[in-house]
Design a binder for these strands. Structure first.
Lengths: 142, 142
DNA sequence: GCTTGAACCTCTAGCAACTAGAACATTTAC
DNA sequence: GTAAATGTTCTAGTTGCTAGAGGTTCAAGC
């Protein structure tokens, strides 16, 4: 049986994060020692690894909740898992497009700035006047 | 003089957001009517446009605070503004790299999934077993 | 001058997904 | 037996807003 710390090390998860996952019902309540400390087994290692891996792929926790649910029911159709993944892919591609536009604009800003003082700083000038932008960037959350 | 609502419309900013910017000291406290309502002039329109534009380019509010500060002091060196922009560009490029890896992995997951039930769903299988991944994705915040 | 309805006001709480800290308890190794 | 490491709960903070409650002011029409 693992302590919360060892589980964390094994899965690359901070202790607080594991407790947080438990709190929001993503991880089950584990067994405890007489003194009240959590102890974990292999099932929990697998589950947490799954969660962490999905997080690394950018899935939001709610999507992970669904995926775990599907994973727990091997006889259900795979379509749902598939569509969750497709949704995530779309998100990723959307963010990439936005970032591409931002990068273009930032690069241009920086290249055109030739030093000197802020009065004629190109970076600040572009920020002041949106009309100087060439791309259609609006990627706040990107 | 503009009301907060008109300022919002003019700059594409929600009213709540403007008040929030004021609260954190990014926007100055504006003049008020006798009844206590905010009224704005051209200076504020420019300042808010600057903020919004920088946000669209992904700058965090703290960076924007610095940029506004620089913008207010035309005699200071442009180097700082430049380095803030460079920092932002690096961030953007980092996020793009991560997203690229994620996209590859997601695409592969989806392509290999041939339907059926979740017991042999490729999507879930990949999530279960990280070793199946080809790319080195670890882009949670990406 | 009066009414009405839209827009304003403050304040609090919520979102995602953690992270950090305080103050205390348990476990483990020597 | 003791001390260090790790565990416990609880609260609050992070970023950048957003939403709602409950009340006030403004501007236009009559």
């Amino acid at each position: 049986m693992l302590t919360i710390g060892s589980l964390g090390k094994k899965t690359g998860t901070k202790v607080q994060t594991i407790r947080y996952y438990e709190q929001i019902g993503l991880m089950p309540e584990p067994g405890r020692t007489d003194g009240g400390q959590r102890r974990y087994g292999d099932t929990e290692v697998d589950r947490l690894s799954f969660i962490r891996h999905a997080r690394q792929l950018g899935f939001p926790l709610e999507a992970i909740r669904e995926l775990l649910d599907l994973s727990d029911n091997p006889d259900r159709s795979c379509n749902e898992a598939d569509s969750i993944a497709r949704r995530q892919l779309k998100q990723v591609e959307l963010r990439m497009d936005r970032l591409k536009a931002l990068r273009t604009e930032l690069k241009r800003m920086i290249q055109e700035c030739s030093g000197g003082n802020t009065a004629d700083c190109k970076v600040l000038e572009v920020l002041r006047d949106h009309s100087e932008c060439l791309t259609d960037h609006d990627g706040i959350g990107a």
